[in-house]
């Protein structure tokens, strides 16, 4: 059962990822990204990371992806021409990607991994919260400062300029 679920979610994720690569239109790519992200959330559930799965959905799907689609809608419309690099560069890119994939897979095959622990770890969410505000307090605070900086920076960058008003 675990194997079947893994292959289903992995297939969903891969279909989405390949869709992002191949999609003709940028909004189609965004939808494929949604598929990939949903598959990833399923994989997180399989890996006992329930909180992470839900957070993935809230932040990526509900936040980042909506932002991306919003950005696409602001900057393009139906029938915008395809923005891709030429065939030669595409070939180089695909070769790079596949070469990297081959290298990583070879490395994985030749590595001996520890056998997985069979246990289900209880109360993951609570422990996650404790470690966020315990061991990882400083990174947590830095991340919040970063968010503040991002908020101000984004508002500054996207503000209306005097010349736009005129």
């Amino acid at each position: 059962m675990a194997a079947a679920l893994f292959y289903i979610f992995a297939a969903i994720t891969l279909v989405g990822a390949i869709g992002v690569v191949m999609a003709k239109h940028i909004v189609h790519a965004a939808v494929q990204l949604l598929v990939a992200l949903l598959g990833m959330a399923g994989l997180y559930f399989l890996l006992d990371a329930e909180f992470l799965a839900a957070a993935q959905l809230v932040i990526y799907v509900g936040g980042t992806l909506v932002l991306i689609i919003f950005g696409v809608m602001l900057t393009s419309h139906l029938g915008t021409r395809l923005m891709r690099v030429g065939p030669g560069e595409t070939a180089i890119a695909v070769l790079t990607g596949l070469g990297l994939l081959a290298a990583i897979v070879t490395a994985i095959i030749h590595t001996r991994f520890p056998t997985p622990p069979p246990s289900v770890e209880p109360d993951v969410t609570r422990r996650l919260g404790v470690s966020l505000l315990g061991d990882y307090l400083v990174p947590f605070e830095i991340a919040s400062v970063l968010m503040l900086a991002v908020m101000i920076g984004a508002a500054y960058l996207a503000r209306r300029r005097p010349k736009d008003a005129a």
Binding site: T13, A17, L43, E89, V94, L100, T111
Partner: peptide, 20 residues
């Protein structure tokens, strides 16, 4: 290893997207 291979595939897809 299954998860790692899947992640590698995702990463390759990401790289190809960025480059093309």
């Amino acid at each position: 290893p299954h998860y790692l291979v899947l992640a590698a595939m995702l990463f390759a897809a990401g790289i190809i997207t960025v480059l093309t």
